[in-house]
C-alpha cells in the first residue's frame, strides 16, 4: 500500500498542466491508486498471511504484519508438497510445448504465407475455426482416445492438447507477420541456390523473431497456468504440474492456513518473477494475442 502512495505522489509531480486541473487531477489519481490497492493488495495480503501462525490468522487482525515470520510454513510447504517436483514438471511440459508450437506453427505459417499453392487460405481458415472451439468440449472424447492409446497419465497426454490448442493463434500471428515480408529476399536466395529449408531456417526464422516472442509469451502464460486438463489427464502425484499440485496441496492441508498461504505464494512466484523481468514484453504480447478476435 505504501509503495502505491509513493508512486502516486511522484506522478502528481510529473503530470502536465498542474495549475488548471489540480483538484480533478487529485481525485483521478486517488481513484487510480485505489484501483492499484484493490488489484495488488490481495496478493500482498497473501504474502503476509503465509508468514503467520494459525492463531494470528484466526485473530481477525487482517492488517497486521506477522509477529515473527513463520518460515516453518514454507518448510511444510516444501516437505509436504513436493514443490520442486511440480515446478520441474511445469518447466518440462511448458518448454516442450513452446518448442513444438514454435517449430510446427512457423513451418505451417511459412507454407501458408509464402508458397504458391491453392489450398493455403483453406488451411488458414481451418485453424481460425479452431480458435472458436471451446477446449472443454474435447475433454471427454480426448480422455477416451488417450485411454485407448494408453497414454493417459503421462506428460504426453497433456503436451499434445497443449500444442494443438496453442497452434491456431500462433499460426495466425506468424502468418500475419510473414505475409508482410517482401518476396525479393527469398527470390534472390533461391536464385543463389538456397534450399527451401535453408530459406526457412536462415532467413524466415531470424526475421520473425518479434512475433515468435509474442507466441512464446502467450503460450507460456496459457500453458504454465493451465489447470483443468492436467487435473483430468494426470493422476500420479509425481507427474502433476504446478497449478494442479497447488490445488491438491490446498485440498490436503485444509486447516494449516499458513502452509496453504506459503504454497500459494510459492506457486505464484515463478510467473511473478518472470513478470517483473519482462513486464513490458508480456503486456505487449498479451495484447497482441487478444487481437486475434
Amino acid at each position: 500500500m505504501n509503495t502505491s502512495q509513493v508512486t502516486t505522489l511522484r506522478h502528481v509531480k510529473t503530470v502536465p498542466n498542474r495549475r488548471r486541473f489540480s483538484l480533478t487531477k487529485g481525485i483521478v489519481l486517488l481513484f487510480l491508486s485505489v484501483l492499484v490497492v484493490t488489484q495488488v493488495y490481495p496478493l500482498l495480503w497473501l504474502f503476509l498471511y503465509s508468514f503467520k501462525t494459525n492463531e494470528e490468522i484466526l485473530s481477525g487482525n487482517f492488517f497486521a504484519l506477522p509477529q515473527s515470520p513463520q518460515w516453518s510454513n514454507y518448510v511444510s510447504a516444501f516437505s509436504g508438497g513436493d514443490y520442486l517436483r511440480y515446478l520441474w514438471n511445469s518447466i518440462f511440459v511448458t518448454t516442450v510445448t513452446m518448442t513444438c508450437v514454435i517449430i510446427l506453427s512457423s513451418l505451417a505459417a511459412f507454407a501458408i504465407s509464402r508458397f504458391r499453392w491453392r489450398y493455403g487460405q483453406v488451411v488458414l481458415l481451418l485453424f481460425l475455426i479452431g480458435m472458436m472451439i471451446p477446449m472443454q468440449a474435447t475433454l471427454l472424447p480426448l480422455m477416451i482416445i488417450f485411454k485407448n492409446m494408453h497414454i493417459l497419465n503421462t506428460h504426453l497426454s497433456i503436451i499434445l492438447p497443449y500444442i494443438a490448442f496453442s497452434m491456431p493463434i500462433a499460426i495466425f500471428i506468424l502468418n500475419g507477420f510473414m505475409k508482410s515480408i517482401p518476396g525479393e529476399i527469398e527470390e534472390s536466395a533461391i536464385m543463389d541456390g538456397a534450399s527451401i529449408l535453408r530459406v526457412y531456417w536462415n532467413i524466415m526464422l531470424p526475421i520473425s523473431v518479434p512475433p515468435i516472442m509474442t507466441v512464446c509469451i502467450l503460450t507460456f502464460i496459457n500453458i504454465w497456468n493451465e489447470y483443468i486438463l492436467a487435473s483430468i489427464f494426470i493422476s500420479s502425484n509425481s507427474l502433476k504440474t504446478l497449478p494442479f499440485g497447488v490445488n491438491s496441496f490446498v485440498g490436503q492441508y485444509s486447516v494449516n492456513y499458513g502452509a496453504i498461504g506459503a504454497f500459494l505464494v510459492l506457486g505464484a512466484l515463478p510467473v511473478i518473477v518472470v513478470y517483473f523481468l519482462l513486464a513490458d514484453k508480456i503486456t505487449q504480447g498479451m495484447v497482441a494475442g487478444a487481437v486475434k478476435g
Partner: peptide, 25 residues
Amino acid sequence: YVRKPNFLVSSYFLPVILSVVIIGQ
C-alpha cells in the same frame, strides 16, 4: 492525467498472469 502510466498499468495487469488456481484459492 498520468504521464508515466507503466507502473499503474503493470499493477492492474498483475492478476491476469496468475493461474486460475492461485486466484481461486
